[in-house]
Computed example of a mutant assay.
Amino acid sequence: MKSISILGATGSIGTQTLEVMRSNSEKYTLIGASANSNYNKMIDIINEFKPKFVALMDDLAYHKVKTYCKDNNLNTEVIHGLEGLNTIASCDEADIVVTSVVGMIGLIPTLMAINSGKDIALANKETLVAAGDIVMDAARKNKVRILPVDSEHGAIFQCIQGNDKNNIEKILLTASGGPFRGKKRNELVNIMPHDALKHPKWNMGKKISIDSSTLMNKGLEVIEAHWLFEVSYDKIEVVIHPQSIIHSMVEYNDGSVIAQLANPDMKLPIQYALNYPERFNAVIPRLDFYKLNLLTFEKPDTETFRCLKLAYEAGKTGGNMPTIMNSANEIAVNLFLENRIKYLEIEKIIEECMNKFEYIRTPTIDDIIYTDKNVKKYVKNKYCK
C-alpha cells in the first residue's frame, strides 16, 4: 500500500487524486491533506480517508476543523498555516507527495518533501518555473523522482520511456487554445472574468483557467518541460490541438513522432504518476477511434496571446526572470479576477515587471522568495489604488 500526502486536497487536482484513490482503495492510504479554507470538504475527507494530519491555511477553517475533530474524538491532527503544509509534505509516513496547491506557496513544502526523500507527483507549475534549477538539483541529490501530473508533461514522460533523451529532436507540447482561440486583440479588450473561465475542454481552477485563456499556462509548461526533460527551449514547440486528444508528442532524431492519446481527463496522468512504473485499470472512458472524425493542429498566435512569447523569453533568460514573470502573472490574474484590471493588462503587467526588476543570474531560494514578494508588492501598490 502506498501512503500519500496531498497539498491542495480540496482543489481540482486534489479532488481528482482522491477519486483515483477511491478507485483502488486497497492500494492507497491518505496520510496528510491540506486545504486553504474549504473546511466542509476537509471534514468530508477526514471522515472518509481518516488521514493522520490535515492542514488549513485559513484561521476560521482551521478552528472549524479542529473543533470538529475534537468534538467527534477523531485522531486526525489538525495543523495551521505553512507549518501544516510543511508537516504534511515531510512526514515520515508519506511515500509520495502530490503538490497541487496553486502558486508560489507550493515551493517551500515541495522542497521540504524532496529533502525528506519523498517522490513528488507535481501539479504545482510554479515550483519548477520559479526554482527549476534548485528543485531538480535537490531531487538529484536526494534520489527523488519528480513525476509530472500535468496531462502534457505526463504524456511526454510516457513518450520518452525506453528511449535515449539524447535522441530527442523536439518536444511538441499540445494546447487546446483556450476559450478565445482564433480571436484577435481587438476582440479581447472587454473580456470579463466569467468569459475567460469558460474552458472548452478542461475543468480547472480559476487561476489555471485564466492562464489557459492567455496561453500563459502553456508558457509555464514550456519552462517546466525544459527542467523536467532537460531539453533546450529551442527544442520545445507549442502546437494548438483543439480536440485535446493528443496530450503531447516527442519527435526523435530519426523523424519518428511518438504521441500519447486519451480522452481529456486529469485522472489518467494522476493515476500514472501515483503508480509509476505500473499501470492500473482505466479510471477514465476509453477512446473510441471510430468517433474521432478529425484531429487538427495549428500554430499558436503569439502576437495576440503575448504571454506565451513572454514565457519563452523568461525561460531563455533564466536566473530569476521566470520568477519575476510568474509572480507578476500570479498577482495580475488575481487582480483580473477581482475586476481591478482589464484582461489585456495581465500581459502588460508581466512585461513591465520583467523590464523593471533586478536580474539575478544564479538566484538562491532566498532570492526567489524575495523577488516574488517584491514583484507582488509593486503590482499591488500600483494597480490597487
Rank of each mutant, 00 (worst) to 15 (best):
Asp254Lys: 10
Thr296Met: 04
Asp265Gly: 05
Val257Phe: 05
Ile270Leu: 00
Ala328Gln: 06
Ala328Ile: 07
Cys307Ile: 01
Pro322Gly: 05
Ile324Asn: 06
Asn293Ala: 14
Phe336Val: 05
Glu303Asp: 15
Leu335Glu: 06
Ala314Trp: 00
Ala273Trp: 03
Asp288Arg: 13
Glu313Gly: 00
Leu337Pro: 04
Arg306Glu: 10
Tyr272Arg: 14
Leu308Met: 03
Pro285Ser: 03
Leu308Cys: 12
Glu313Ala: 11
Asp254His: 09
Asn263Ala: 06
Glu303Ser: 14
Asn329Ile: 02
Met321Asn: 09
Met266Trp: 04
Leu294Lys: 15
Tyr343Ser: 08
Ala328Cys: 05
Leu344Lys: 00
Ala314Tyr: 00
Arg340Asn: 13
Ser327Gln: 05
Lys316Gln: 14
Val283Tyr: 05
Leu337Trp: 12
Ile258Phe: 11
Asn334Ala: 10
Thr323Cys: 11
Leu261Trp: 01
Gly255Pro: 08
Val283Ser: 05
Tyr272His: 12
Phe297Arg: 08
Lys267Glu: 07
Asn293Asp: 14
Leu292Lys: 04
Ile324Trp: 03
Tyr343Glu: 01
Lys299Ile: 13
Gly319Pro: 03
Asp265Met: 03
Asn275Phe: 01
Ala332His: 01
Glu313Lys: 12
Asn293Trp: 13
Lys309Gly: 08
Lys342Phe: 11
Tyr343Asp: 13
Glu251Ile: 05
Val283Leu: 07
Leu274Asp: 03
Tyr343Thr: 14
Glu330Tyr: 00
Leu295Glu: 08
Phe297His: 02
Pro300Leu: 08
Ile341Phe: 03
Glu338Val: 01
Lys291Thr: 14
Gly318Phe: 02
Pro285Gln: 10
Asn329Pro: 14
Arg306Pro: 06
Leu308Gln: 06
Asn326Gly: 06
Ala273Gly: 01
Arg286Asp: 10
Ala332Asn: 06
Leu308Pro: 09
Lys291Cys: 07
Leu295Phe: 01
Leu261Ile: 12
Val257Lys: 12
Lys299Leu: 07
Asn334Phe: 13
Lys342Trp: 11
Leu294Asp: 09
Leu337Met: 15
Thr296Ile: 06
Asn334Glu: 15
Gly315Ile: 02
Leu268His: 11
Leu274Arg: 03
Glu330Lys: 08
Cys307Leu: 14
Gln271Tyr: 06
Val333Glu: 11
Pro264Glu: 13
Tyr252Trp: 15
